[in-house]
């Protein structure tokens, strides 16, 4: 307890020291699957950007002379019944898949965050309204709602993105409302208020840093979820309208003739499955590294 006053250190010395990053990367790295997943996801994003340029053919280019070809050097993934080059179609699909998944997740998150924050901070009637809406969304088969929205607004990129986005916000709202409520009522915020912090400062310095990681993890889990919904719509014939390329369409069509032309199923389904798993591995890795105690 000896309150010895130490020789004052040069002020610059202490403040220049780098802020420790909690070693989240070193924790993430321990999960090998997550590292693999991250590699695949990065590749997926790169293809999403440059796919259309590196594809040997246009996705809509039909060549009936080369229909139903098995994999060969010229058509590494084979061709389908109208002569579409499967490799090209897959390369083009990545872009659509990413646009819809990211867009839909973003819409869900915006709606969920806005409603969740409102419910958590206001409480009372606002909380009741939002949480009953969330209960409704959980109880209602959202897939069915997606189908209704897509039939109403068409099967283009934007309507599908909007449909998936607007039906998927309930989880985010519940998560964010819970986090806000827990923090708002907690001693930390009370202590900050007791020290005279303004509400704005509490939001920026206390609430946001403490929910940031949980939100990132929730978003990482949201993307593969939305990819699955998107493919699911294609399977019942309500996904992106062909010839717009999408994994769901390719898989759904290949399913009609698995025995005759199995490569039509193997390549798109395999790549899509690995992609989904990779996104999940990344999300799990992030959860372990950033938010080990939080829930999804």
């Amino acid at each position: 307890m000896a309150a010895k006053t130490l020789a004052a250190p040069p002020a610059g010395l202490v403040r220049k020291t780098k802020r420790p990053r909690f070693g989240w990367w070193s924790r993430y790295r321990r999960n090998k699957l997550a590292v693999f997943g991250l590699g695949w996801v990065v590749l997926f994003f790169i293809i999403g950007v440059i796919g259309p340029w590196i594809a040997p053919h246009n996705y809509a280019y039909t060549n009936f002379l080369a229909a139903n070809q098995p994999p060969s050097w010229q058509y590494p993934f084979g061709t389908d019944s109208v002569g579409h080059d499967m490799l090209s179609e897959i390369l083009w699909s990545v872009q659509n898949a990413l646009e819809i998944a990211l867009g839909a997740t973003f819409i869900s998150f915006l709606v969920g965050a806005a409603l969740g924050l409102w419910a958590g901070l206001k409480g009372g009637i606002a909380d009741q309204i939002v949480m009953r809406l969330v209960d409704f969304m959980y109880a209602f088969p959202t897939y069915f709602l997606d189908l209704i929205l897509v039939t109403t607004f068409g099967r283009g990129l934007a309507p599908i993105m909007f449909a998936i986005g607007i039906t998927g916000w309930a989880g985010y709202a519940r998560l964010i409302r819970g986090l806000t409520l827990r923090l708002r009522e907690g001693e930390m915020v009370e202590a900050a208020r007791a020290l005279g912090s303004t509400q704005r400062h509490i939001m920026i310095a206390y609430l946001w840093p403490n929910v940031r990681n949980s939100m990132l993890v929730a978003l990482a889990f949201g993307i593969p979820g939305d990819l699955t919904v998107m493919a699911g719509l294609s399977v019942v014939g309500m996904g992106l309208r062909p010839p717009l390329p999408s994994f769901g369409n390719m898989i759904a069509q290949a399913g009609t003739n698995v025995l005759g032309f199995p490569w039509l199923l193997y390549f798109p389904a395999g790549i899509f499955a690995i992609t989904l798993l990779s996104f999940l591995f990344v999300a799990e890795g992030l959860q372990e590294a950033l938010d080990p105690k939080g829930g999804r």
Binding site: G186, E187, M188, E190, A191, A192, R193, A194, L195, G196, S197, T198, A205, Y206, P209, N210
Partner: peptide, 21 residues
């Protein structure tokens, strides 16, 4: 807000919960 923390300081019960992690 001006008075809290400047003219009147407060120490709470549980130091485990009161600090921003």
């Amino acid at each position: 807000e001006d008075i809290r923390g400047r003219d009147i300081g407060v120490v709470f019960q549980d130091p485990m919960l009161g600090l921003n992690p």
